[in-house]
């Protein structure tokens, strides 16, 4: 078993008065795709936002490659090589696709430009709409732009929040392909409600409920275990 790239232990997060994360702990392995599952409001998105530093952790430790990051500012964490793709994609609608990418590129060196070319090869639509305002893109294209912005830098960990939300099934398949390509170069932690997507890319899973991990294991086991699926994920086979 390889070492964990990210270890979250006993983290509590409050949003206003609400105690959202109540001592969550999990580890993401460096050689696999980790999926966080759970109902709405279980604390999946809050976990990612706390990791990237957008929400302060009231207690607990977040260790990324041996370094404690729970008290760092979001930009410091991002510069450590963690990419974040938020739930609503966080596209700058008034900026062009090109400008969106430029804001994302933390340096202008040859490596970054090589990654940019490779990313644009992966998402051909972005090249097509290079000079268009990002606001006019379709939902799938926006998601591609959002992923492209995150992988144009040298990222070793990608936090992706519900990429499939509101997208057509055929686009979801494109995303699955993309994430399967990305995971060759970077560790991925994925929050997902869409079980088809989660099971297609995930290796390990953690199920969250009320701000804590209630179950974890290997993806193939979860795919077999229909009782667990229906208990925590509300998935039931229609017979």
């Amino acid at each position: 078993m390889s070492e964990a790239i990210l270890a979250v232990s006993g983290v509590h997060t409050f949003i206003g008065q609400h105690h959202i994360l109540q001592g969550i702990s999990f580890e993401a392995r460096a050689d696999a795709v980790t999926v966080l599952l759970g109902r709405n409001g279980a604390g999946k998105s809050t976990t990612l936002k706390t990791t990237i530093g957008l929400l302060p952790a009231a207690r607990g430790k977040i260790v990324y490659r041996g370094k404690e990051i729970q008290d760092c500012k979001p930009y410091e964490i991002a510069r450590e090589g963690i990419g974040f793709i938020p739930e609503h994609m966080g596209i700058f609608a008034g900026l062009t696709v090109e400008e969106n990418m430029r804001v994302a590129m933390l340096s202008e060196d040859a490596d970054t430009h090589r990654r940019l070319e490779r990313t644009l090869d992966m998402f051909a639509d972005l090249r097509k709409f290079w000079r268009a305002k990002a606001g006019i893109l379709s939902g799938g294209q926006k998601q591609m732009l959002s992923i492209a912005r995150a992988i144009v830098n040298k990222t070793s960990l990608l936090l992706i929040d519900e990429p499939s939300k509101g997208l057509a099934p055929i686009i979801v398949d494109v995303l699955i392909d993309a994430i399967n390509q990305i995971k060759e170069r970077s560790v991925v932690i994925l929050v997902e409600q869409n079980f088809y997507m989660a099971s297609s890319v995930g290796d390990y899973f953690f199920i969250l409920d009320d701000g804590m991990v209630v179950h974890s294991g290997e993806m193939p086991a979860l795919i077999q275990d229909e009782a667990l699926q229906s208990r925590y994920l509300g998935i039931s086979k229609i017979s």
Partner: peptide, 10 residues
């Protein structure tokens, strides 16, 4: 447009 996202981009 989005302060948080700019921060999360480093």
């Amino acid at each position: 447009e989005d302060r948080d996202m700019v921060q999360a981009m480093g």
